[in-house]
Write a protein that binds this DNA or RNA. Structure first.
Lengths: 183, 183
DNA sequence: AGTGCCTGCGACAAACTGCCGCACCCGCAG
DNA sequence: CTGCGGGTGCGGCAGTTTGTCGCAGGCACT
């Protein structure tokens, strides 16, 4: 039952912090790596049961790390996480040994579920009392998260963000005006 | 060099006809199955080197056919093809043994390439190469992925999915009905 | 002054949503 | 067999939200 060593490999400090906190609250032992090298180093030194890997690390695509990590610890559940998801990379990732793949605006629930860590998700029985609610994350919430992320990625440039999102600038404006900030 | 036995499993006669013709012109030996049962029967009787499988067959999801086919002929290259592509189903398909996965509006070139059959002239070194990241993923695409994920999580139950998503059932229906077409 | 890019915002038709209703198909307890 | 609960399509309608245009103004740079 001590199987709670969790590794987060992501170059976005905010994301890491948020996820790490959420996991710790769930009694996981979390370690973080911001790039491929340190990730590999950590995996060589410690044992992990779960890991999330972002595909967009500075150096080589996170994709190349998959075989390495998986080889070092075959029984570790490896989840590839990315904001730049695509069918093609999904196929690649799974073939390379990833256990699952999620497009990025994903909450802790989904991440754990994708890692096969059931505490009340999809699985079945297990009731006792789920301290963690659990619901798929509404479409609008997801949209909001995503927009915020892309927005900051473009330093708050609305036009650029709208373009990147394939959404009309006016629409983005309206959306942003709607829910000011927060939430 | 006689490795040109090709199986097409798809319930859309038009699609089958078009693809079959294109393949025959390239000197492939093509056979077609419109449903899971006949597909399985064919695979039991003949040897195939390539196969495309549509995920939306009448009976059980084409997904369930993957292990069966792959087991009967492990060295056959199996390509899953669908108009309702999503990350979630991609992960499923690959894990079940498919060799590749393509969203449906795909031409013969792409199909052959995905099956690892290279013939053309153009630059190549296609496989085993990082697929290349890309753009942020549009909001609508993200929404689509999310919906698909939740939908599969609920075994395709539309009402349940709509409930889980906090979205009106009618709206979900309409979205599902429309997306595959355009995008 | 001239460009190019960004930002708000008004206006209006087109598209989408929430909501209601109806028809119809199971599976299961009565 | 009948009723009930739950699921699936789909038509329709009023109310919202988009997609588009257009315009004015702000900056930075040449």
């Amino acid at each position: 039952m001590t199987e709670r060593q969790f590794l987060i490999v992501d170059d976005d400090p905010t994301f890491c912090a948020v996820l790490a906190r959420a996991l710790k609250r769930r009694h996981f032992n979390v370690m973080v790596a911001h790039d491929g090298e340190s990730a590999e180093a950590l995996v060589r030194e410690h044992r992990f049961h779960f890991a999330t890997l972002d595909m967009r690390l500075e150096g080589p695509s996170g994709l190349t790390l998959i075989p390495t990590l998986k080889q070092l610890q075959p029984d570790m559940q490896l989840l590839v996480l990315t904001g730049y998801a695509s069918i093609a990379t999904t196929v690649e990732a799974i073939k390379l040994g990833a256990d699952n793949y999620l497009p990025k605006p994903a909450d802790t629930q989904q991440i754990l579920a994708a890692l096969g860590y059931s505490e009340d998700t999809s699985g079945q029985q297990n009731h006792s009392q789920a301290p963690i609610p659990e619901q798929p994350m509404s479409v609008s919430r997801l949209e909001w998260e995503h927009i915020q992320k892309v927005l900051t990625e473009h330093q708050g440039n609305i036009s650029a963000t709208a373009r990147a999102l394939g959404m009309h600038r006016r629409t983005l404006q309206r959306k942003l005006a709607k829910y000011p900030v927060k939430r």
